[in-house]
Design a protein around this nucleic acid. Structure first.
Length: 296
DNA sequence: TTCCAGGTCCGGC
DNA sequence: GCCGGACCTGGA
């Protein structure tokens, strides 16, 4: 499949910025992974996205996953920009927030607590190898469904190297399998209600829930606050302590960036992780408290 | 060897 | 409500 692109698409940044954990770089700029459980490799050449493989996902599935449907441009058009965000958007022109399967995102981010990207990946692959179905064309298995994952007990999960996350994964698999948590139902739910439902599960706090909402459930107003965003809030916006607590941070972000603040978060996050501290807004643009806190 | 990694839970103020 | 410590494990 060949899909002509309207604007820049940076697969390297998009697929390896910590929103998805299973993509692998292969030779010549190709990235290999699964979309909708189908094996595919992707690359961008001369303004065209190439997606191929023997049983590759459809054009529509690829386009939806990468937001080649105008939703990325809608973000660019509608987001409110300040100096730091403008710098991040300019430095990362091809970065996008993927539209992923919420179940896969949920499992990935439950594994993410107190871990690094490499460990998250290795744990996730271990789960897929142990409980997921094989894929046509070989390669890594699909992410196990809730029922498939629920067949492993806590001891099994610990043997796979999940550590203390084992009971969390076990509980989450059972909750989704048994319908105690209906993920797809959370798409239409209001942010507050969806957050409350997710956080009620063991091992899911506000940070993980926000990631599931943003990366998997289309709640672009979810604003995950992790250590990197905490750094941005402190260094760039002079917000520390209570001012950086998730609830207040989200309110601040929505006011500053608008209803797609979560999408903007991914740019701030990736910039801070891969490039460094963001430029600071002019004093006038900061809130009064922040401006006085930032003063010498 | 020691420390840290995209957090969450639990107990004490 | 807020603050601090423990928590599996693998890699630097």
């Amino acid at each position: 499949v060949r899909i002509p692109l309207d604007g820049p698409l940076d697969l390297e940044a998009t697929l390896h910025s910590g929103q998805a954990f299973r993509w692998r770089r292969s030779s010549d700029g190709w990235h290999e992974g699964l979309i909708e459980g189908r094996r595919v490799r992707l690359r961008v050449m001369g303004g065209v996205l190439e997606a191929d493989g023997p049983a590759a996902p459809s054009r529509a599935q690829v386009a939806a996953y990468l937001r080649l449907d105008g939703s990325h441009e809608a973000f660019l058009a509608e987001v409110r920009r300040d100096v730091p965000l403008e710098a991040a958007l300019r430095a990362l022109p091809g970065l996008r927030v993927l539209r992923q399967d919420p179940w896969e995102v949920l499992v990935g981010f439950v594994l993410s607590q107190n871990a690094n990207q490499q460990r998250i990946r290795s744990n996730l692959e271990a789960l897929c190898a142990a409980a997921g179905r094989p894929v046509a064309g070989g390669g890594p298995n699909r992410v196990p469904t809730p029922s498939e994952l629920a067949r492993l007990d806590e001891a099994d999960l610990r043997r796979l190297g999940l550590g203390y996350r084992a009971p969390y994964v076990h509980a989450v698999a059972h909750a989704v399998r048994d319908g105690a948590l209906a993920l797809d139902g959370l798409r239409q739910a209001a942010y507050d209600e969806a957050l409350e439902r997710l956080v009620s599960l063991p091992g899911i706090g506000v940070k993980v829930a926000d990631c599931v909402l943003l990366y998997g459930l289309g709640h672009l107003d979810a604003f995950p606050v992790d250590v990197w965003i905490r750094r941005v809030l402190a260094e760039t916006y002079g917000r520390t302590g209570r001012q950086a607590a998730p609830l207040r941070a989200r309110a601040f972000a929505l006011k500053r960036f608008g209803p797609m603040a979560g999408y903007a978060q991914h740019f701030l996050f990736h910039y801070r992780r891969t490039i460094g501290p963001l430029p600071r807004p002019g004093r006038k643009a900061l809130g009064q408290a922040a401006a006085s806190a930032a003063a010498p």
